[in-house]
């Protein structure tokens, strides 16, 4: 097998391993966000936020997850479009040289 393929497989396995290990050892944790954890700690001191978002807040967790998925989709779309373009260019270059 090519070295590059092995690197990608090993990389993906380590990533999956880390996430699965976290989920398996986490027991009945709440899996809340660490950002939220810090927010709670501040709220406990009695601090009140002095400013609220002037636009809007996503009305529910579902809408929020939609927007996060959209963010990831935009990023992936742009990256893959460019990767595909580069890949095509480098293939064409190889063919010319061959």
């Amino acid at each position: 097998m090519k070295r590059s393929t092995i690197e990608i497989i090993v990389g993906i396995l380590i990533i999956l391993g880390l996430v699965v290990f976290a989920l398996a050892t986490g027991g009945d944790s709440e899996w809340g966000g660490a950002d939220g954890g810090a927010e709670d700690m501040i709220s406990e001191t009695g601090y009140e936020p002095w400013f609220e978002s002037p636009l809007w807040a996503p009305p529910s967790g579902e809408v929020e997850s939609l927007l996060f998925a959209l963010q990831a989709a935009i990023g992936t779309g742009v990256a893959c479009l460019i990767f595909g373009y580069w890949l095509g260019q480098s293939k064409r270059k190889d063919e010319k040289e061959a």
Binding site: A22, T25, A34, Q71, A72, A79
Partner: peptide, 21 residues
């Protein structure tokens, strides 16, 4: 591409060993 990776990776909330994401 670099900007796109900031977009993608900062959108992914991943569970970690502490029981939070």
């Amino acid at each position: 591409v670099c900007g796109a990776f900031v977009f993608v990776l900062s959108a992914l909330k991943i569970p970690s060993v502490t029981g939070s994401c």
